[in-house]
Design a protein around this nucleic acid. Structure first.
Lengths: 121, 121
DNA sequence: CCGTATCCTATATGATACTG
DNA sequence: CAGTATCATATAGGATACGG
């Protein structure tokens, strides 16, 4: 598939049903990566401050539990959006940051925000 | 909030934490609207063919049940992404189509697809 | 400091049968 | 044709206590 595809070419392909195949649909893949109550907030916090430690994230994201923060971070890591660096010191010290792949989501969030400003009251 | 905000202005605001407030974050709102196993596929089918009838959608989306198709359509309708027109004939006849708000999601899906082509193997 | 383990509840999804 | 009703299951999310 062409990585330089223009928007017009994209629309044309959509209407021909090119992306119908579930397993290979990039939109579905990405929506799955962002699915979950806390995923986007974590990414968002890492946009504001990068890197962040586990405790900082927990403090920044109101209401999240240890369990959910850990699970969400592990999944984001598995999807390659977030990286984890562990410093073997006493006391323990871990840093989470956005990968290039994760940072590249920002233009999408921009489009989503523009859409929201126009259509969400 | 400025509807003509450039991408650079957006990034600057993100880093200042402008969009942190959950309730008003357009990205979270939109992600919630697209959450669920079938939502995107329904929108996608309506991009290919518009309008579509209940039975057509059911046939096009492999594995979806009556219950899930109905629930998903009702939620998409409540969010203003899809409109439902009922023709009072015998046999019954219902047409679903994308609203302007729903159609305006296409640039977002384009960005997501571009991202996917670059970062998903 | 940064988690894990365990248990519990809530929500999402699914199967099946039936109806205006 | 386009659903609804009912019941069952699967997955997501949460509370609490404890450990390297």
């Amino acid at each position: 598939m062409n990585k330089n595809m223009t928007y017009e070419e994209y629309v044309e392909k959509v209407q021909k049903g090119i992306f119908t195949d579930e397993g290979n649909c990039p939109v579905i893949s990405l929506l799955l990566m962002l699915q979950g109550k806390w995923k986007f907030q974590i990414i968002y916090e890492l946009c504001i401050k990068n890197p962040m430690r586990f405790g900082e994230l927990k403090k920044a994201i109101e209401g999240i539990t240890n369990t959910m923060l850990t699970n969400s971070l592990r999944e984001l890591e598995a999807d390659g959006l977030v990286s984890r660096i562990q410093f073997n010191e006493i006391p323990p010290h871990v840093e989470y940051s956005l990968t290039e792949k994760g940072n590249a989501l920002l233009p999408i969030f921009y489009e989503m925000t523009m859409w929201g400003l126009q259509y969400i009251p």
